[in-house]
């Protein structure tokens, strides 16, 4: 823990990002080694690194098991309008007053990676694509859940329009609040996976990820990034804000 309290030297922005990533890893490591020391202290296995590595490799094993369990056809349960949770809980890695401000007129969704057509998309253009709306349950990794209605463009439709290589492994997302995350391609192509523009009967409000978020009812809440400003297709695992700190990458439900 004391390592993280040393005064940092002056660094270039790119180096700072690396340091932040390293600190995230250390966060997981120090947390895990506390438990490891408590439990394995008597077993001459006092190196938290070994336990940490084992847990990370078990998490990768769980990614594979979940990918195998996942069905691209099985739909998440849907609910009626009367079952919607009201008020719907606000949730982010920051407080409500830090929700990013976005100029809707100037907003563009950037597209990059393994796609044929990389021109940016306005909100109006996204609304002209076929839409879908589902009332589904959002399950947070913390354990709570809430039912809401999200409407928008099926991600599969969007990926087809931009000529994405759907044999690639991942679809990554970058957000206006510096959040980032990714989906595996089979989940991205699931019929209920949406680029959501609407929440209930209205356009996505700021607190719920305006102007565009991912809504994927077959994943835990943190795999539903909000305020997305860039989408890219890749064969390299793009990582994510929580994934890089130790949350399981697949996190299917």
């Amino acid at each position: 823990m004391s390592e993280r309290k040393k005064a940092p030297p002056k660094l270039e922005p790119a180096q700072q990002t690396q340091v932040v990533n390293l600190q995230r890893r250390l966060l997981l490591r120090s947390g895990l080694s506390l438990g490891a020391l408590a439990m394995l202290g008597g077993c001459n296995l006092q190196d938290g690194d070994q336990v940490d590595k084992l847990l990370w490799s078990m998490s990768r094993w769980n990614d594979r098991v979940q990918a195998w369990l996942f069905s691209g056809q099985r739909l998440a349960q849907t609910y009626t309008a009367t079952q919607i949770t009201d008020p719907f809980p606000f949730n982010a890695f920051y407080a409500e007053y830090n929700v990013p401000e976005i100029d809707l007129d100037g907003y563009r969704l950037e597209v990059s990676g393994l796609v044929e057509r990389k021109q940016p998309w306005t909100l109006q253009a996204l609304r002209q694509l076929p839409q879908r709306s589902d009332i589904t349950r959002l399950i947070c990794i913390e354990g709570w859940s809430a039912i809401g209605q999200w409407g928008g463009v099926p991600l599969r439709t969007f990926l087809e329009r931009i000529g994405a290589d759907t044999t690639a492994k991942y679809v990554g997302f970058k957000c206006a609040d510096r959040y980032y995350s990714y989906l595996d391609m089979p989940t991205a192509l699931h019929p209920q996976t949406l680029l959501a523009l609407d929440f209930g009967q209205v356009a996505l409000p700021p607190d719920y990820g305006y102007p565009l978020r991912v809504r994927v009812p077959t994943k835990l809440g943190f795999k539903n990034p909000k305020h997305i400003v860039e989408l890219f297709v890749s064969n390299q695992n793009p990582g994510g804000y929580w994934e890089d700190q130790g949350y399981n990458g697949f996190s299917g439900i």
């Binding site: 997981l28 947390g31 895990l32 438990g35 408590a38 078990m58 998490s59 990794i141 130790g246 399981n248």
Partner: peptide
């Protein structure tokens, strides 16, 4: 009395040891 240090660590333990 908890193992893992934080939520991500606890889940990592839980979903590893379950096997």
């Amino acid at each position: 009395s908890t193992l893992g240090g934080w939520l991500g660590g606890s889940i990592a333990w839980h979903l590893a040891v379950m096997w």
